[in-house]
Design a protein around this nucleic acid. Sequence first.
DNA 1: GACGAGATCGCAGGGATAGTTT
DNA 2: CCAAACTATCCCTGCGATCTCG
Lengths: 167, 167
Amino acid sequence: MKTIEIDEELYQFIAGQTKHIGENASSILRRLLKIDQPTLAKQNITAQKESHYTPFNDLLTSDTFTNEKSIINRFILLLSALYNYNPALFAIAATSLHGSKRQYLAKDKQLLETSGKNTKPREIIGTPYWVISNTNTARKQYIIESIMSDMGISETMINQVTNAFLP
Amino acid sequence: MKTIEIDEELYQFIAGQTKHIGENASSILRRLLKIDQPTLAKQNITAQKESHYTPFNDLLTSDTFTNEKSIINRFILLLSALYNYNPALFAIAATSLHGSKRQYLAKDKQLLETSGKNTKPREIIGTPYWVISNTNTARKQYIIESIMSDMGISETMINQVTNAFLP
DNA sequence: GACGAGATCGCAGGGATAGTTT
DNA sequence: CCAAACTATCCCTGCGATCTCG
């Protein structure tokens, strides 16, 4: 048996999940965590049935996106979707992303301009953010992946987006 | 804080879900159970009570640090935190640290440059100090450990920092 | 600062490793 | 002479932004 410390509120929550008198913490937690830890196979089925990444699925299958042949526009559309999916997480990921000299994303167009010699900032529509655009496709892809990963988005979803993004 | 008992296996499972060094059980469980984290205010109060190394814990769990993939930047961030934790102690540790020829830290960039042939001094942002950067990872780690040790920082904390620092 | 997108290529920085000193 | 400690050369990668092409 191991002992762990948890805060009062969480303790109350766990205690409230007791199924029968005298059920121990391990038993409760195992039950609760099982629900959240389905097998890989199950996860995929669930993902297909009802993903909690609905905004991306919607975007990826939308005509606006699929009909959009330019990398840049798909790039902006994706960033916009990411922001709207979770602005707070996006903000964190965005501010911590940079190259050796250039800042890749910021709310301030000027900041991007002054962080390099010819960064060509572009507004991310539907968003207070701007992105650098003077990069090759590989770097645009890296930016997307990096943001998604920092936002804690699943590997599977990232791959899906990557596939849809590339030509 | 409440204490609960769980079996070994479950403990290992939970420990394995750690997202960043020093994350506590409550935080991990809340993430897994999809419960909201307690408010920042609450967390800080607890943190202050629990550890007098708050600045390091803060840094190590900050997004700026955890999202930073380059060794050099993590190195600088740590030194900056160490200085701000206690400038006086840092000063003592810094001036007494050196190799056989090179001075590792100084307030004066030039001093570092002239103490070796290609030391590549880097400014420690938020600090009047500079560090040598032309070293391998092992030496950077040694510099961090050495400074912390000289500053009288606990073994446990040093280990925690080391873990967070290395790739 | 006004054509825009992005591939290509050159340069800089990071740090492993070969080499030197103690 | 060997080992350990330390240095800094130099290779390699990652990044920037010029330049080409639509």
